[in-house]
């Protein structure tokens, strides 16, 4: 008992000391984040509803925000990672064109998870499809299997990654739906960055959530719904 008290005391002392030392001009450096001691549950299914009619031509704010949040270089070479991209779509017969952001669709039946030999590709209980980079052997089979071409392979050694977003050479990666932000109670960077608020993020399973309500009232589609994968990302206005 005493021992624990002592440990706790010394921990408090050091953290207080640390906090005191690191309060630089106006900035609290030692971020006391709130830990989550409970596992995520399948009662929640995270998803998005993207309003393509509102997605401005030539605007790349979601892409920029994603790159910044996740520490991507933003390079456009075929060997550079792109977790989210804008696709310009032209309906030739109707003479209509529009654009939308495309990223991992966080399928309910993700092909990448089915084909991964080591189980590195997995779906979290709350519907987020992730790569466990500790297990990824870099075979790229998931990239072959993904119908949305949502995944990138890290072709070079990386440095100075975001401490919240570990990424490394020889493993496959893709949109994590900003899982580190979601776990901290925030919404994904792209949704936050969209100037037109075209990306609505929320819990698809919660009937009272804004996204669920809107999905009930507006016509929306899932991309390649013919494949029956039930993606968590819905699009409006395609």
């Amino acid at each position: 008992m005493n021992d624990i008290h002592n440990q706790r005391r010394s921990f408090l002392k050091t953290s207080l000391g640390v906090a005191a030392v690191t309060v630089a001009p106006g900035l609290l450096l030692f971020d006391v984040a709130h830990g989550k001691s409970e596992a995520v549950s399948s009662k929640v299914r995270w998803g998005m509803l993207i309003d393509t009619t509102n997605c401005a031509d030539g605007c790349h704010d979601c892409v920029t925000a994603c790159n910044k949040e996740n520490g991507l270089s933003g390079g456009l070479a075929p060997t550079d990672s792109q977790w989210i991209r804008k696709i310009e779509i032209k309906d030739v017969s109707a003479g209509r064109s529009f654009a939308l952001p495309m990223m991992c669709q966080h399928c309910e039946e993700p092909p990448c998870v089915d084909v991964c030999p080591t189980g590195a590709s997995f779906k979290r209980a709350d519907g987020i499809v992730l790569v466990d980079k500790h297990r990824c052997i870099g075979c790229r089979y998931c990239m072959m299997a993904c119908p949305y071409k949502a995944r990138s392979f890290v072709h070079e050694p990386l440095h100075n990654q975001n401490p919240d977003v570990p990424r490394g050479k020889g493993t496959v990666e893709s949109c994590t739906l900003c899982v580190h932000r979601i776990d901290a109670g925030k919404q994904p960077a792209c949704a936050e960055a969209c100037p037109n608020k075209s990306i609505l993020f929320g819990d698809l399973n919660d009937r009272n959530s804004e996204i669920a309500k809107k999905l009930r009232t507006v016509a929306s589609v899932q991309v390649r719904s013919d494949l029956g994968l039930n993606p968590g990302i819905h699009y409006q206005g395609i």
Binding site: A33, G35, K36, L130
Partner: peptide
């Protein structure tokens, strides 16, 4: 625990180790 279940314990985390 973190990657698969989303249990983010503050104390036992690599990030926290590095912080100090």
């Amino acid at each position: 625990e973190v990657v698969h279940k989303g249990i983010r314990d503050d104390k036992i985390s690599l990030k926290n180790c590095i912080e100090c």
